[in-house]
Design a protein around this nucleic acid. Sequence first.
DNA 1: CAGTATCCCAAGCGATACTG
DNA 2: CAGTATCGCTTGGGATACTG
Lengths: 156, 156
Amino acid sequence: MPKSLGKDSTCSIARSLEVLGDRWTLLIVREALIAGSTRFQEFREALGIAPNLLTQRLTFLIEEGLLTRRTYQEAGTRSRHEYVLTEAGRSLNLVIAALSDWGRTRRARPDGTSPAFTVEDSDTPVRLAFVTDDGDQVGAGQLVARRTPDRELVGR
Amino acid sequence: MPKSLGKDSTCSIARSLEVLGDRWTLLIVREALIAGSTRFQEFREALGIAPNLLTQRLTFLIEEGLLTRRTYQEAGTRSRHEYVLTEAGRSLNLVIAALSDWGRTRRARPDGTSPAFTVEDSDTPVRLAFVTDDGDQVGAGQLVARRTPDRELVGR
DNA sequence: CAGTATCCCAAGCGATACTG
DNA sequence: CAGTATCGCTTGGGATACTG
């Protein structure tokens, strides 16, 4: 593991990458978030991931609090597990949206697919943007970023 | 490499991860975007990355069109390289912002630091949000995502 | 300073066989 | 179906020595 990574990093991006920065995790989250998959086999077939790796990644995601495992029982069958995103897991929709936007525009493919986010019940399309507190959108060209202690970012 | 990954994936998220989904790339982009680093040594010291890896990653990022290498010459010194983000590289600020928001809120640390985005020249704070075309912000709770062919997402 | 070249190691992945 | 267990291998990463 890189030295600048690790859970102890003072950088919030590095800490995120510590959890999300391997080749399967975000794809599993994507599958749960966009396709609504909850079952082992659904993940397996959608991703083409080896079963041992899937077990390992699901366990990791549960440990990290992004997924919960629920046991449920359908009448007449034996009990099964389902894997459901927690609030922390669902809140990755910003990351998922950002990644898919980038891939769609910067690595476009004629036959590509991406998640389309809409408002529940109304189908109003929604997209990701930088906004001020007044609700004004800000173009990428006029943005500046500076590293700032998190305690100065309270409530944002 | 996972089978569902690769440049040929029809999933825009998977294609993004193909470029960004290793342990160093996004940290290098972060360093360029937030700290404004451009020199080999700056990246090296800020990240603690081994020089061979840095060379390898920089070369990769140039190949992928996220960075350009410029040669410049200061009076009296020999020529040097600087590594500057392209438009495609800068457009990762959405991804960077999303990752840092997640890490800051879901993996909080008392001594953490994150990029604070502001509007150029005005210092107005800016944050990431889902918005409708009317500019209304949409809370995470009322979002729905569905996988959609990219050609239906033209202009968004 | 700005890299390149080597060497070694460990983690991560893929395939596959197996179990309740 | 829903996993667990094993094995071999490849790749990515760390350390370090070296060069213009």
